[in-house]
């Protein structure tokens, strides 16, 4: 059964909470798995459509590479650059519908960024669970 996209306001709140808790993260985006933007806080330098498309490509390639190599399932993709770190992961419980992409400063502590990414993804995941729960 197809999952409905979760409440946009709650997703926005989850991204705002993330940005407030971790000041080394500059951009947080939720994209749909086929590369369309869902929520972005705040605007990245790149157009949201392009950023969302790139995030979905990275996750799909990550899945494919791990599958080809027999290396298990994807947790996150890390693109570590001289001016920033990009972390992209699927939101658990969304049946692969949503992708979380975070851009952090290059000197950000990776463990911290990953930890905040996981907390944020779990908060968004809870949104799905709430919407599935009987009234």
């Amino acid at each position: 059964m197809a999952l409905k996209a979760p409440d946009r306001a709650r997703c926005t709140q989850a991204l705002d909470d993330l940005l407030r808790r971790c000041d080394s993260i500059s951009v947080a985006m939720l994209a749909l798995r086929d590369g369309r933007p869902y929520v972005e806080r705040p605007a990245a330098k790149v157009a949201p459509g392009k950023f969302a498309a790139m995030a979905s490509s990275l996750v799909a390639l990550g899945h494919s590479v791990l599958r080809e190599l027999g290396a298990g399932t994807l947790d996150h993709v890390l693109v570590d650059g001289s001016e920033g770190k990009l972390v992209v992961s699927s939101v658990p419980g969304s049946n692969g519908l949503l992708i979380l992409a975070l851009l952090a400063r290059h000197d950000a502590r990776l463990g911290l960024v990953l930890g905040h990414a996981k907390s944020c993804a779990n908060a968004i995941s809870a949104t799905f669970a709430d919407e599935r729960a009987p009234a």
Binding site: A2, A5, L32, R33, D34, R36, L97
Partner: peptide
């Protein structure tokens, strides 16, 4: 991946990379 837009009426999946 599975389509999430009107393309889903035509096909189940679409290439993203």
């Amino acid at each position: 991946v599975g389509c999430t837009d009107e393309l889903a009426d035509l096909k189940e999946t679409t290439t993203v990379a």
